[in-house]
Simulated assay, not measured.
Amino acid sequence: MIFEQFFEPDTSTFTYLLACEKSRQAVLIDPVECDVEKYIAALQQRGLTLVYTLETHVHADHVTAADTLRKRLGSKSVVHRDAGALCGDLLVTDGIHLQVGAVDIEVRYTPGHTNGCVSYFTGNRIFTGDALLIDGCGRTDFQQGNAGQLYDSIHHRIFSLPDDTLVYPGHDYNGHTVSTVGQEKRGNKRLGGGKSRAEFIEIMANLKLAYPKHIDVALPANQACGNLAVKQSA
């Protein structure tokens, strides 16, 4: 499998390129609008055809490149059916498998940060979006967030994987690029060390986080799969 990790520094967002070496079919997980040219250059350099853009959720901190890539490259936008983005070409549910050449990608429903969050599992890697971060997790105080639901999602759908499964998050703010399920189960400051559901809910209730600075632009745009007209009128 071909794999590349991109980082957008303004919003500390990771985007992931996965592709089949034989078919040259590719997907991008959580592409960011401002990095479209970077993605297209990488695809062209490798001789890849973009089949899908996969959203882990409707983002509040950046505008997705899904609509732009769909228009320019003919890719299909994939979002969970409860994400609030009916513009998606494929509205997926838990347990759906996407076949990209020889690469099999399983959709795992991991709500709690928002009610439409999914993680994508393939091989020994899971792409967790904002559900599970390295030494942290997504906030649960907006977009139908629910701390108890997030705790259950992470434990049932991510921590249930083998300890050596690689964890690739949607963001990192401290220079990390990858973790493992075992590392997060042991040391995650919000979830690790066997913290109970009640302890986690209390931690999340007392974070006192600032209002997301890009949400008023990003959220309506992403509910339209990153449509630029929606973004500009927001």
Rank of each mutant, 00 (worst) to 15 (best):
R125V: 10
D164W: 09
I154F: 08
I126S: 00
G116Y: 06
T114E: 13
R157S: 09
D152P: 01
L133E: 11
D163M: 02
R125C: 11
Q149S: 10
N174G: 12
G148A: 10
Y120N: 04
T140K: 07
T165L: 06
D164F: 11
Y168M: 15
F142E: 08
G145N: 09
G175A: 08
G123T: 04
L133C: 03
I126M: 00
G145H: 08
Y173F: 15
F121A: 12
V167W: 06
G123Q: 15
D135K: 13
S153T: 01
C117T: 14
R139D: 12
L161S: 01
R157Y: 06
P162W: 10
I126Y: 02
G138T: 08
R157N: 15
I134T: 09
H156G: 00
T165W: 10
Y168W: 15
C117W: 03
T140F: 09
H156F: 03
Y151G: 04
D172S: 14
T140R: 06
H171T: 13
D141W: 10
C117A: 14
H171V: 06
N115F: 11
H113Y: 10
A131Q: 05
Q144M: 12
D172F: 01
S119I: 01
R139Y: 10
D172E: 09
C117L: 01
Y151V: 08
R157D: 06
Y120C: 02
H155W: 07
N146W: 11
F121K: 12
A131D: 07
F121W: 15
G145R: 09
N115T: 02
H156A: 14
I158W: 09
F142M: 13
I126D: 02
N146C: 14
S160Q: 02
G129M: 05
